[in-house]
Amino acid sequence: MNDHAWHRTLDETPVLHRAGCDAVKHPGALSEGLEGEAPDIDALAKETRDEIIAYGLAVRPAYDLLKRLLGQYAGLLVLAYGSRRRDYVDLVILKVAGDQLREAAETLGGLRPPRRVQIHHDALRSACQALAGIQHRLAAGEIKSDADKDRAHAILKTVQNALSQASDSRFAMTMVDFRQACCCGASA
């Protein structure tokens, strides 16, 4: 995957599903795939279940990267809006973010999800492309005016929505890593 194909601009970015859109209305699309109450579930062999589990495990690193990228871009926007600092975009961090994006895109591109969880894969790919758009604009120094920031903010919200919908604690895909949280060290 070369940089040009991957670094899509915001305008070229496929539209993410808005909050509340039917396509992302189903939290835990992965779990649904596993539990599947749709009539055709009986027709699916155990193999399919194994495929979903394999997919869930393989996709997790990409989910983690996208979550971290969302956190980074959101943090940069907080600083852009909320602090007097003008040097909020750090080039080293941008370079690393670019590497993280590439890795996430490659992981997602290398997966062939079972049909039942195609929607999960689509959501992550769309999130990845949207984040790539933001990365591109940041690297080009194109997020400066309030209108630019507002646009980036709106995109991050759709990414957040997509990632939340794609979260599934059974695959350790959660927005917060609770395992070491200060107040969560006790097992129930």
Binding site: K67, R68, L70, G71, A74, G75, L77, V78, A80, Y81, G82, K149, D150, H153, L156, K157, Q160, L163, S164, M175, V176, D177, F178, R179, Q180, A181, C182, C183, C184
Partner: peptide, 16 residues
């Protein structure tokens, strides 16, 4: 650990 990117994103709302 223990920080939710979604909270940071809500921080953007506040800052804006």
């Amino acid at each position: 650990i223990a920080v939710d990117p979604s909270d940071i994103l809500r921080g953007v709302d506040l800052a804006k």
